[in-house]
Design a protein around this nucleic acid. Sequence first.
DNA 1: GCGATCAGCGGCACG
DNA 2: CGTGCCGTTGATCGC
Lengths: 251, 251
Amino acid sequence: MDLSEAGRELKNAVQSKKLAILVGECEVKYWGRAASRLPRGKRLLLVKGGDNSLSIHQNTKIRPVNYMMDAVISCAEKDGALLIRAEKRKPAEKIEVVFHSLEHFKAFEMEGKNDLRLFGSEKELSDSLAENLSFIEPGLKPVKREGILRKGIVDILAEDKDNNIVVIEVKRRQADFNAVTQLARYVEHVRKIKDRKIRGMLIAPAITETALEMLKSLGFEFFNLEFEISNPKAKIKGLEKRQPTINEFLK
Amino acid sequence: MDLSEAGRELKNAVQSKKLAILVGECEVKYWGRAASRLPRGKRLLLVKGGDNSLSIHQNTKIRPVNYMMDAVISCAEKDGALLIRAEKRKPAEKIEVVFHSLEHFKAFEMEGKNDLRLFGSEKELSDSLAENLSFIEPGLKPVKREGILRKGIVDILAEDKDNNIVVIEVKRRQADFNAVTQLARYVEHVRKIKDRKIRGMLIAPAITETALEMLKSLGFEFFNLEFEISNPKAKIKGLEKRQPTINEFLK
DNA sequence: GCGATCAGCGGCACG
DNA sequence: CGTGCCGTTGATCGC
């Protein structure tokens, strides 16, 4: 397929929300939040009609070397080459792809559904944990939220057997500096509202040495919790209740 | 091309480090850091021989719905379908893609070079700013970083006209909570080492209201600096030195 | 629309 | 290798 025909077909594909694939010699320029130039070379251009996003891929990496989402896409011929322009505003950005030669063009009708089911998100783990707080510590109970703490910010808000407030931050992977400073922010936040002793607790499958140091210096606690995906399960030496795991479930 | 031939061709493509493209009806399962299931539907599978990475794309979004890098990829037939397995360890992960029908298969020889030139990274902006500190404040001078802090942690370490240490954190976009807590960590770190007055300064094109609040409460300063990409240029009312911008340069 | 946070973050650079 | 942190972060959810 020659370049000008590919241009018409691409226009058509975008119109009808198809997925278009182009492979060929091209160069790419980008202006926007940053700026970049990609000299001439063979690449894959993906135009997704489902949401007018566009990516330029090389033969390595998961992420595209150039991309734009919610783009206004247009084609033109220029000096015998195929010029594909993608533009958007907010933020103002522009991509120009110039194909000097095309090795492959194809467009596919696609279904629009996005029905990935993901297990083991932080929210899932956190919710599951909130229902089993006594596993963390006897007498630990979730507390009713109000006002500014109503939702979203603090992962879990609890109360221990001595009526202290416990601010809990859950991480699905190894906790780092950022996790600790987040917890610190939330604890400070709660201190301003509640006139009670506030404990800060970080729950994660692991924590970096330096983050643990900082956590301790702030007087907070770390609880090591190994997650079997979709079911939180504490890794406490010798004490292990057997539960079906998501890995087994999916088998 | 039928499924079994596609399997052989894919194996061949991986062997010879080609870029392989498959479009067809498939379902995807993933086990690893999390777990996911993607029911049967038409999708695009990208296998990049350059680094043995693999992505499954739908007709929306920049990011693939499933993916793996540095994978060990294998093909097999199973109940008349094409089963593509991707595995890796560290972390242990597995993807199974089952193609029930194939609408398209193609593999491309690709060059291995990755020669994107990017302008406007934080490091570039920070370096450029470090050479023009007097623009921020008269008498502000960079101080040799070696021996004071592990290099790379603090964006810029400077000294003002009164011999105070100024810890500077640069952000290429709107600064948020994280930027402030980062700065706070660095300032704390420097305080322990230097027995001098330490100023903390955040330089960014914008800052969220709440982050500014927190910044002030910590006694730090915010300097609004609008960046013309690749050339930092302060947006101070009335005071503007004209310089060619990267946008003009790339024109 | 902006703000805040998660992500199977990915990717990179330094120790 | 791990640790930290940037990213044209992207994607999501609540306000």
